[in-house]
Amino acid sequence: MRPPALRLDGVRKSYGHVLAVAGVDLTVEVGEFFTLLGPSGSGKTTLLRLIAGFESPDAGRIELAGHDVTSTPPHLRQTNTVFQDYALFPHMTVGENIGYGLRVKGIAKAERRERVERALNMVRLSGLERRKPNQLSGGQRQRVALARAVVNEPEVLLLDEPLGALDLKLRQEMQLELKRIQKKVGITFVYVTHDQEEALTMSDRMAVLSNGKIEQVGPPDEVYERPATEFVAGFIGISNVLERDGVRFVIRPEKLRMLEEGQEAQRGMNVEPGTVEQVVYVGMSTRYIVRLDRGDQLVAVRQNMDAPGQALRYEGRRVRLAWVPGHTYVLDHQRARSDAAAGD
């Protein structure tokens, strides 16, 4: 059996009194697209820098492909990084940038040229190898940074919020592109982001970090549908947390049905009355912020299928919110859900 591409064991790192990484255990399998998701200050970038070797941990162990690299300097590690600011060498051409890793490893010129060519092809920048970085657009620089890292065929490719500086449209394009490249080259990706949508769309598995600790690890749908903690529930997507009969549980907005007068709930649904406090139009859908008569505030989402302008007229209306108990997820009691699902 192949050892995992990356294994972290009790990794800790603090700066002065600030604990940036508070004991992280993690295993990333070969070929996985693994995302570290968390708000700023959650320790995700520090974790990435520890894996790359730019920082050394106060405690714990880091393994790459089964080898202990905890005290190996960055230039001897089989990792490559795509930096947030790309960090392209301004005095080198695109081709020299991409070939630099191969050059310092002493790879012959002919092979170097061939591999650089292939990498450029992969990121669809063929013909630009003579340009300087300052003659490229943001999206092109991003691709060069990616090619410069991938060309070395590292055990693990580390990406530090690589799409952060791009505009929305380009970002979505690059998300698909990154995924395509990752599948093609089969390199293990460890991807840092604070963008939950990015994490959900791209990852095979993801870890949600908060205050230097991992809150949950799992495939995106599992993390979204079954958040392990209130933090995860709150950080990923909009979540409604309710407490009824001493049990705290999460209902996602899209699972709530908003019933108007005269509409009947289906059998088996829980129904609670309330008032629409605010209507937020978001284009494809509309969010209704509803204050339940019992005091809780919930968010419901509806697709905008009605005539334009209809949604905004709901403000102040009396409504009832209905949900299927099996669509909720009980917090802090991982097992409770399967019980609820069984009774569904």
């Binding site: 070797g53 230039h75 990792t79 930096f83 630099y100």
Partner: peptide
């Protein structure tokens, strides 16, 4: 940019390189 030095090390260059 400080990240340029890190990028070089990341790509396998030692201190002298």
């Amino acid at each position: 940019q400080g990240s340029l030095i890190e990028a070089a090390m990341d790509l396998g260059a030692n201190g002298f390189q």
